[in-house]
Computed example of a mutant assay.
Amino acid sequence: MAEQSIAQHELATLIVESLNLEAVSADQIDPDAPLFGGDLGLDSIDALEIALAVSKRYGFQLRSDNPENQQIFSSLRMLSEHVERHRAV
């Protein structure tokens, strides 16, 4: 498993807390593993919860009509990179 960056760990913690993932700790989320359809068992409702948590924490909207969503939500690494590019300073 690849090591998480500080930004990835912060985002992984947000995901675990916002989805109440009791069986998973933030440290266990592989930055390159699929967020959906993988070990975490996340679904489209979880994607909405993550988007809401990200908008509250980082000050920008993850829009459901964004054609890049599949890529953005493909892994913790991709989501973290997107957040870092768009977060309010």
Rank of each mutant, 00 (worst) to 15 (best):
D65W: 01
Q28D: 14
L21W: 11
P31D: 09
L42C: 04
D46C: 13
F36G: 06
Q28E: 15
E49P: 04
V54D: 00
L35Y: 14
A33P: 04
A51N: 01
G59A: 10
S44I: 06
Q28W: 08
R63A: 15
A53T: 12
N66I: 02
S44Y: 05
A26Y: 02
G41S: 01
I50A: 02
L52R: 14
N66C: 10
D65N: 12
A47F: 10
L35G: 07
Y58L: 01
R63D: 13
P31Y: 13
Q28H: 06
I50F: 09
Q28P: 01
A47E: 05
E49I: 10
N66D: 15
L42I: 03
P34L: 08
A23V: 03
R57N: 10
D43W: 01
D46S: 11
Q28I: 00
F36S: 09
L48T: 11
R57M: 09
G37V: 06
V24E: 02
F60Q: 08
D32N: 14
D65Y: 12
Y58I: 03
A51Y: 13
L42V: 03
D32L: 15
S25Q: 02
I29Q: 04
L35T: 02
L52N: 00
A47K: 07
L21S: 05
K56N: 14
D30P: 01
S64R: 14
G37I: 03
L21H: 10
A23C: 00
S25I: 07
L62Y: 03
A47S: 08
L21E: 02
N20S: 14
Q61A: 13
